[in-house]
Design a protein around this nucleic acid. Structure first.
Lengths: 333, 333
DNA sequence: TTGTATGCGTTATCAC
DNA sequence: GTGATAACGCATACAA
């Protein structure tokens, strides 16, 4: 009950394995009738080429490694969906692995890819540039997604967090908010850092003289809840909260509403990412096209693999501000 | 700048490739000092074994193929997360592929796994049993998840949809509902069918004489919206809607609320799955532990691969009813 | 303990 | 057009 090999097909068709290989790969240097015999034999045996052996011989695995951190639901699935779309369109499979927080397990995950994939897609917003560079084999093409990079030695894709944050602050200021606080993401995370930077810069530009107020957070809903409690306790005075991601914004929104605070009248709230929940709950946020991020990352990697080189520049995807109820400006300004 | 092979290591350590292999794989039949030389050489060259070659030689790829349909966000990510947890714990990688709707692409996806994986995890609630059986090579171990199966020839995992549906109906009846309609999922989908069956059976058992009313749906939010419109138009008389999944329930909920219908007073609504949105919006639903489904599927497959055979029985995971606001019974009964 | 040789399933380079 | 045969990178049975 073991799988038929190319030799079995050759024996049955009374030809050499070379001819089988040629016939099955559509080369034209094989006579019509022998080709037919071979195809028939393969069909009868239910022959399927052994991809592992094939890739060893061709030095091409036709699959790409995807190493992602522990992402929350929608973000993860959208990203993988986008990647899979482009990959399967171009005949590649995705080999998935987690970029664990402990850097030594992360290194292992990267090493495990060697010899099974033609290239790597790495998303590691929390990993230090040197560590990442060290863990990546120079021999294996890779596209970096939302990674910190000391010097741009790899092609990379990034969300333009500065632009997104600026759009939020601009909107809040335009709708009359004076005391905008920022609820930050985890330390060491590039996205979080850049969103905070964007907040600070825009505040300085649009509301000169106003000191930025940054509350610590970790991208989890509970951090938003905690921030809301501090606001309710009177520790923080503000008329707008800009959270570094949607989950924190929603945690904050939930708690404030429950305490009877009028949203957006008393306090406006905005997030970042535009997860489906944000749409449902009417949260103003910055829409990041995750699936597109994945699709483009794959496209970039495969272009590189197939010789259509593009250099190592960093491509920035500009996110879009989505206005919803938590900052509604109808009666304002 | 090409990757070092075992031969490079052998040359540098002045030993044969056999010794390198032995040393690196931790066999004890190699002298201490030569082992050290080898390890040092490997380290200096940054040698990482070529997994492809290794698996060809060992006839073990240490990775498993995962073929999923086009799942909505949370379901997909939770499932993969659960799988990855168990897989990486036991030293396996996940090779991902989409089970497309067109059965011929689906077959291709399955074939593409040959020679790269040690076993398959297949979720295909929409695929006919014969087609599925035909597409699966008997030589490749596989665990079926939420699949229809004529005769149980493969180990499989399933959600106990009957039990879940029954729990919902029982709850609705207990809280005084008399006219419960069911909003069904797509035809041909096992989960959808079983939930509808569970609804019918429970209705017959708990509300004898009441004719079941089943509205067509497709698991999408818009189907819930459409059903709500029919209810609002007076086409359907009911005091409770049990949707075959959460998204439809939420679509229905949204539309009814917008039309001023009191939920749950006038109409109660329940879903199935317990996606995060359900929790946020207070939707009564049936909680399916997706991640656990993935984890157990992997465990089952690896047990089989590692010789701990378990037979081909179908394991049912019992979901749990989660009571929330859309069916709240405080003032009822 | 160590080395040589063979095989894993393909593809590719030669001859014929 | 077709068939041997040498890679691909590794593991291992067998010799030494």
């Amino acid at each position: 009950m073991t799988e038929a090999t190319i030799r079995d097909v050759a024996a049955r068709a009374r030809v050499s394995v070379a001819s089988v290989s040629r016939a099955l790969n559509g080369l034209n240097n094989v006579r019509g009738d022998t080709r037919d015999r071979i195809l028939a034999a393969a069909e009868e045996l239910g022959y399927v080429p052994h991809a592992g052996a094939r890739s060893l011989s061709l030095a091409r695995a036709h699959s790409i490694g995807v190493v992602l951190p522990d992402l929350h639901g929608e973000f993860f699935s959208e990203c993988v969906r986008g990647m899979d779309r482009e990959a399967s369109r171009r005949g590649y499979l995705l080999l998935l692995s987690n970029m664990h927080d402990e850097s030594d397990r992360a290194m292992k995950a990267l090493r495990a890819m060697r010899g099974r994939v033609d290239g790597l897609l790495v998303m590691a917003p929390h990993v230090a540039p040197e560590l990442l560079k060290e863990a990546l084999s120079p021999a294996l093409p890779a596209v970096l997604i939302n990674c910190r990079q000391a010097t741009p030695t790899r092609p990379s894709l990034r969300i333009d967090n500065h632009a997104g944050a600026e759009a939020v602050v601009r909107h809040l200021v335009a709708s009359g908010r004076k005391r905008i606080v920022h609820l930050a993401g985890p330390e060491g995370n590039v996205d979080a850092r850049e969103r905070a930077e964007g907040y600070c810069r825009s505040l300085e530009a649009l509301l000169p003289g106003t000191a930025p107020v940054i509350l610590p957070g970790d991208f989890n809903e509970s951090a938003g809840d905690a921030a809301a409690r501090r606001i309710l306790a009177g520790e923080i005075a503000c008329d707008a909260v800009f959270a570094a991601n949607d989950m924190m914004a929603l945690g904050c929104l939930h708690r404030l509403r429950e305490a009877g605070i009028a949203i957006p009248e008393t306090i406006a709230i905005a997030g970042f990412d535009d997860v489906p929940l944000a749409r449902y709950l009417g949260l103003t946020t910055v829409q990041v096209r995750i699936a597109e991020l994945g699709t483009r990352a794959v496209a970039r990697l495969l272009d590189q693999l197939e010789g259509k080189m593009q250099g190592n520049e960093e491509v920035l995807l500009t996110p879009e501000l989505v206005l919803r109820g938590t900052t509604a400006t109808n009666s304002q300004i």
